[in-house]
Design a protein around this nucleic acid. Sequence first.
DNA 1: GGTAGACCTGGACGC
DNA 2: GCGTCCAGGTCTACC
Length: 292
Amino acid sequence: MTFTLSAPPAFNLPAVVRSHGWCQMTPFYETPDHGLGYIIRLSTGSVLRFEVHTEDDTLRIDTSCRLSPTEQVELTQTIGWMLSLDQDFSEFYSLARQEPKLLKMVERRAGRVLRSPTLFEDVLRTLLTTNTLWKHTLRMCRELTTRYGEPLPSDPTQHTFPNPQRLAQEDESGLREQCRMGYRAPYVYELSQRVSSGELDLEVLKTSSLPTLELRKELMSIKGVGSYAAANLLMLLGRYDYVPVDTWALKVVSNEFFGGQKITPKQVLSTFEKWGKWQGLVYWFWDWFPAQ
DNA sequence: GGTAGACCTGGACGC
DNA sequence: GCGTCCAGGTCTACC
């Protein structure tokens, strides 16, 4: 079935889809017209594929099966979260217009970062990005969805991202050996256990009014989530007060601001400090490699 | 608060 | 084919 959603002013779907690497990870995919595709399990138990396309000033949603009215409401809310449809970037854009290295992103109407339907999924994805090559991150994610996700009825080779209840049924060794997650397996297992048992409610953090520092502490209480992962997750939660410093950040910031000298994470952070609550976005969308 | 070493996987390289 | 080295963040122990 097909239905439409209104897009906020200055919304660019391809810019969200390509805002970071999530779209390369299963069960996300980019459609040929640079829209978003995803396979989801709704709370009713329905497993379906949906695609979001731009159509004039609206978003057209195509689904692989007919939805009940309540399912349509749930999917609408989920898409709204995934694409940050309710966020307003006008304040950021007016600041960014004063910085030549941010002009391109303002023109592209970038700024929104693609989110998973649940914070559990985003935390797990982030864990898979740490201390490994991107290629291996994609492989681990593919193994997780294929082995533990629910198959799409119309195409059983495609699967949803596994939910915490399903992963909590596995044991560490299964995750370690079958998904080749290495030392990350106990982190994924513990997270799934805590979320499925109700001990940890990650989803409330989506609407938390906690100060960012407190939210960061909360995220860093999760085994496997350190300063980089926490900053990454804060960005996904719409808090941009921290820069996710990884080896890539050390490299590009050094080349841009320190003449290629070896620098420390503290130097990366101090470089963007002046941008205050927007510093994470400034780092993320900085024009590191301007066209010659 | 800062630092060193271990944790894993898989690719690159030398023999 | 085998062994070694390396890259990638986080955790833990120690100072």
